[in-house]
Amino acid sequence: MVTLSDISRRSGQWITPQIAVFALVLLSLPFWIGPIGLYQYIGVEIAIWIIFALGFNLLFGYTGLHSFGHGAYLGVGAYAFGLFQLHVGVSLFGGLLAAILAAGVAGAVVASFVSHRRGIYFALMTIAFGQLFWFGAVKMHWITGGEDGLLNIPRPDLNLGVTSFDLSGNTALYYLIATLVIVITILTWRAVNSPFGRILQAIRQNEVRASFIGYEVWWFKWVVFTLSAMFAGLAGGLFSMAQESAYPDVMSLHQSGLIVMMVLVGGGLVNFWGPILGVVLYFIARDVLGAITETWLLWYGLMFVAMVMFKPEGLAGFLAELKRPSEPETWTKPAEEQ
């Protein structure tokens, strides 16, 4: 059986062949996305959701904490970015920093309440807090614009001091987000193979034993919840930049459910790349199935049900088995020379 805690042959490396291929695919996407019948903006959406999914899987897959209200932090990030552009100043870095910090603070506050819980109590509390944020976004119209949300949020330029790039086009925006995705992929890959990441995985496997060997389990849960909220905040900031608006639906229960489905279908419970596969599959399903039938979400939902019933390891688990169908269940010893 494949598990997230398998020791990778290259667990000590910063850039693995898989990461290099992934970066290549991302950076070349604008050249082939059109010819295959898709469009540039879907690349922007996929890249944003990959950031969200990678952060979410630190919590969901690696630590085993089932948050069903994570859309809230995507929304907090989106609003923070929009409010910064509209009321403070048009700045890319300022807006993204505000998005990350606001979602981080929101995540840290919620984590203070939920990090001493586990299982169903943890899950229910995350839903409850998620709904609080959504309700707040709808009702506090003097800040959030109510159900209409924040409109006409400007897309700031990327100002690097010596030069600046206009991000009003989707291709330019895509390259910015793709670069962030590559950096975040490398950092999360390192993190899950670091002592911190292995402790998170130990907590997922056996929380009781983790505390009996001396770990402050609640502290790790608090940190990873806050971290994943910050990832969501960054994704939310980029989302409101891409959409040039922020509205309550971004933080709805629907979005919280979507990210869970993407991670599960992709195989985030068993593989680092699972969330990325899940995001890609979802958006392709939305556009390809959506072009055929209005009921595409029904078919996607049925696929989710089938996946949970017949292949709970998700797409990544399925691909891993295709790759090594006859291998016995042994683990890979890290290369001696590393």
């Binding site: 667990s11 000590g12 993190a191 002592p195």
Partner: peptide, 16 residues
């Protein structure tokens, strides 16, 4: 205990 002391390390490797 040596590993526990490195709890906050997020980029170093474990198995090498």
């Amino acid at each position: 205990p040596e590993f526990r002391r490195r709890y906050a390390q997020v980029t170093s490797s474990v198995f090498n």
